[in-house]
């Protein structure tokens, strides 16, 4: 069976696990190519212009799989532990995918509510009916799941910037590459939220416990954790992202209070790389000037 995985959205978090799992099950796995302009354009034809950039990209990847595979693997995260929800679009995009693919392509969409073991096993059974290889495949694949517990080390004297943004934005080279590389070429070490252990990211302390979106809580916790370890905070938001429009505001408020340089970049399909680079360079200069005159505020 040829099973397709779109290289977008949750792929950047769980992709390796999915690939391994499906391969172990004996499926022929087709992962779409890296995002490019053609895929994005394809996506724009299928979804409304108001949804956020990563969802448009995902639609493009799904459209690209159409006709090439027998089934598409697209898990649906509704909520993870502690009733932390995924965003409405992430939940709903699976239904959009079903409408896009039509009846010819099977959609394998394990619904994850809390625990993820059972839904994945059930999804595995729809590929091979025998439960033993499914369990074996799952246990082998779960080694690929990210179980980081160590905190990255931050050396003194190093210039650092916290790049706060979703893994599906920063992980996608088409969106995030120019941002990361601009900071690196200016001599900054980029601190991402995905380097932090889960214990930090899912912490319930402080205001974070009021945020009931799982990936937003991670962003906010990463911001809180990194804020005093870096020279500046850059928040990357995609236009039309509902949760980010709120959580970025909470972060901005706090950054203002704690006097941390703060930059919010809003991305959509019309964003030009040159504009981003200019803004980042201006931000870097500002952060450095402030560092040179510490009590200038």
């Amino acid at each position: 069976m040829r099973v397709g995985i779109p290289r977008a959205l949750l792929y950047y978090r769980y992709g390796k696990f999915w690939e391994r799992y499906l391969t172990e099950l004996g499926a022929e796995v087709v992962v779409t190519r890296k995002t490019d302009k053609v895929l994005l354009q394809k996506g724009l034809e299928y979804v409304s212009s108001e949804v956020c950039l990563p969802v448009k990209i995902l639609a493009g990847h799904i459209a690209d799989l159409k006709g090439r595979v027998e089934a598409v693997f697209l898990p649906r995260v509704v909520w993870l532990e502690d009733h932390l929800y995924a965003c409405p679009k992430m939940i709903g995009i699976v239904d959009i995918a079903r409408m896009m693919l039509g009846k010819d392509v099977k959609l394998i969409a394990p619904v994850i509510k809390g625990g993820f073991v059972l839904p994945y096993l059930a999804a595995g059974l729809s590929i091979t009916p025998n439960p033993f290889p499914v369990v074996r495949a799952f246990s082998r694949a779960s080694r690929e799941l990210n179980t980081r517990t160590a905190v990255p080390e931050y050396e003194p004297g190093e210039k650092r910037v916290a790049l706060i943004g979703h893994f599906y934005n920063l992980g996608d080279d088409y969106i995030g590459r120019s941002i990361t590389s601009t900071f690196t070429s200016n001599g900054y070490r980029v601190c991402l939220k995905d380097e932090l252990p889960e214990a930090v990211l899912r912490s319930r302390k402080g205001f974070a416990r009021n945020i009931r979106w799982v990936y937003e809580r991670e962003l906010y916790n990463a911001f809180r954790y990194l804020a005093d370890k870096v020279d500046g905070v850059c928040v990357v938001v995609s236009m039309g992202c509902g949760p980010d429009s709120l959580v970025a505001e909470f972060m901005r408020e706090e950054a203002c209070r704690r006097n941390i340089p703060f930059l919010q970049l809003v991305l959509d399909e019309h964003t030009g790389v040159a504009g981003l680079v200019t803004r980042i360079e201006a931000f870097v200069e500002l952060a450095e000037r402030r560092k040179a005159v510490p009590q200038a505020s």
Binding site: V47, S48, E50, V51, C87, P88, K89, I91, G92, I93, D95, I96, M99, G240, G242, S245
Partner: peptide, 15 residues
């Protein structure tokens, strides 16, 4: 504008 759930509903309504 940019309402998340209704944008999903929009696609369903198109269908």
């Amino acid at each position: 504008f940019t309402c998340m759930p209704e944008n999903i509903a929009l696609e369903a309504l198109q269908q």
